[in-house]
Design a protein around this nucleic acid. Structure first.
Lengths: 293, 293
DNA sequence: GAAATCATGTAACGTTCGTTACAGAAGGGG
DNA sequence: CCCCTTCTGTAACGAACGTTACATGATTTC
């Protein structure tokens, strides 16, 4: 067809990017939604699209008009065309709304830099994980007859929270060590040799977290550690260690790669006892929806 | 949602094949056209589809009815669903067994797949964020004279926790809405027009989270929303919406891309008032190390 | 070859859509 | 704090939509 005719037909995404700085607040919401679910969001009716974004129908039309279309159906036709072209040649899949040209806007650079830095971290981190190590950690959690304890430091406690919510749907006896560290001793009371401690500790390794891990180790608990490449002191007591890159060249360390690693572990645990997990989730949903109707 | 979702809905294509031998001549033309340009052909209007196949509109409707749909829009909805599903996972489907040190070991594949799926999510998500939108959200948080409230759902509360710990080091008046949702009303009491609500809500949009956001909105708080590409209903009240991909082709949705987006926002807030943040951190470290030495 | 049956198009219906004009709300600057 | 500008939603319009009833045309059957 018309392969030579490139500049003549910019994609809708490009047209949006081009006019991005002239958009109003509401129009930006529409732009975000469309680019976020591209191009399906734009194939809905005006009313539906508007309601989803919490704006009115005319705003949608002004938006379509502003980014250079005569009418809303006109925009839809173009979106359809792009979609069709993409579906017909699954090989040129890269013709996704290709990463916008963020250059120019300082925040565009930030977005790009953060994305690439994190991606590099993920590739390096997960690429260097020993599959067997992962396998063992999965079995340790999946087959553990005792309790699984979750613990994290100041910033990594979010990961512990995240792991807690997931593990809880997959198995019983999951406990989160939280609150003031002075009270952690109470949790320690119950820790024994049948238990597993999943602990998160990255640099500025927190002394209270280390102390808890050491105590748990001395009580014969098995420890799985998520840490950074420089290894928390807890690595000495840990049965399985997952070192993850945390640097992105910014002010703060990143937990993104750790989260991917965690999600991988969680997925593995889920796949380890699929039927047990499924039954548990089903039971849970039954309890959530009490027999009222 | 609907509980009627029993044994995996058949695709429209399958429904056509199933009824293929009962179709009339004209209807067969429609079937061929639809299967030949699947599913785009079926997303056009009745009139267009009919004309393209050289039949009349009613024939199209009888066709839709015969293959088991209540109405033509009903069929379109299903086609859209299929299309959307297909578009969302172009990566997990086509991810060829890349040569890696992981090859062979099943966990190696899991590591690779999770990494690549997450990376694709990050690229797509951050690539589609409007820099200006990010800028505005940063300024909203950075210059906010009131309080910043953090709220998340079941799994996303971990992100709220994470954001809380970071924001707290950067500015005062950061509050996390946590605990039983029945008690959230107490937090609502204080929410006003000078305040900002940073809320996380992905699919299976939690009704209590939505309710809080709506209430906060009605009390003139400004809302920044982290959600998925299908947009939480909170998008209607939100001043800034950040849609992020959450699918990795696994059992659970992923928060990894959301975390990268969040870290980007946090970094931006930090860079917005660097000296204020630095002073605050310094102050904080002084307080942590009491004047004992 | 005529009658019965089925397939298909025509025409009209009510609905929903996209669109527009206008008034009110929100935001920014003096 | 008020005015001015800009933005946004409400309400009404015409057009296009999906849908239906009915008549015409094609096909089959005896």
């Amino acid at each position: 067809m018309d392969v030579t005719q490139q500049a003549a037909k910019p994609t809708v995404a490009e047209q949006i990017t081009q006019k991005a700085d002239t958009l109003t607040t509401s129009e930006r919401k529409l732009a975000q939604a469309l680019l976020g679910n591209y191009p399906m969001a734009g194939l809905e009716t005006v009313a539906t699209f508007a309601e989803r974004c919490g704006v009115s129908a005319p705003t949608v039309l002004r938006f379509a008009s502003k980014i250079g279309f005569d009418s809303y159906p006109d925009m839809q036709a173009r979106l359809r065309g792009e979609l069709e072209a993409r579906l017909q040649s699954p090989l040129t899949r890269s013709s996704l709304p290709r990463a916008r040209n963020h250059s120019g806007h300082p925040m565009g650079e930030l977005l790009h830099d953060m994305a690439e830095a994190t991606i590099a971290n993920i590739r390096t981190s997960l690429g260097n994980i020993n599959p067997a190590e992962l396998q063992n950690a999965i079995e340790l959690i999946g087959d553990c007859k005792g309790s699984v304890y979750l613990l994290g430091g100041r910033f990594t406690s979010a990961l512990a929270v995240y792991a807690y919510e997931h593990l809880r749907t997959m198995r019983s006896h999951v406990r989160r060590v939280s609150g003031q560290s002075a009270k952690w001793a109470e949790d320690l009371l119950d820790v024994g040799k049948r238990d597993v401690l999943l602990v998160f500790d990255v640099r500025r390794y927190q002394s209270d977290v280390i102390a808890f891990a050491e105590a748990a180790y001395k009580q014969d608990a098995k420890i799985i550690l998520f840490t950074d490449q420089w290894l928390s002191p807890i690595a000495q007591f840990a049965r399985h260690v997952f070192p993850v890159r945390i640097e992105t060249g910014t002010t703060w360390d990143s937990s993104a790669a750790s989260m991917v690693m965690l999600e991988t572990l969680l997925e593995g645990v889920g796949q380890h006892n699929p039927e047990q997990v499924r039954a548990r989730i089903k039971h849970l949903e039954m309890l959530r929806r009490p027999p009222q109707s």
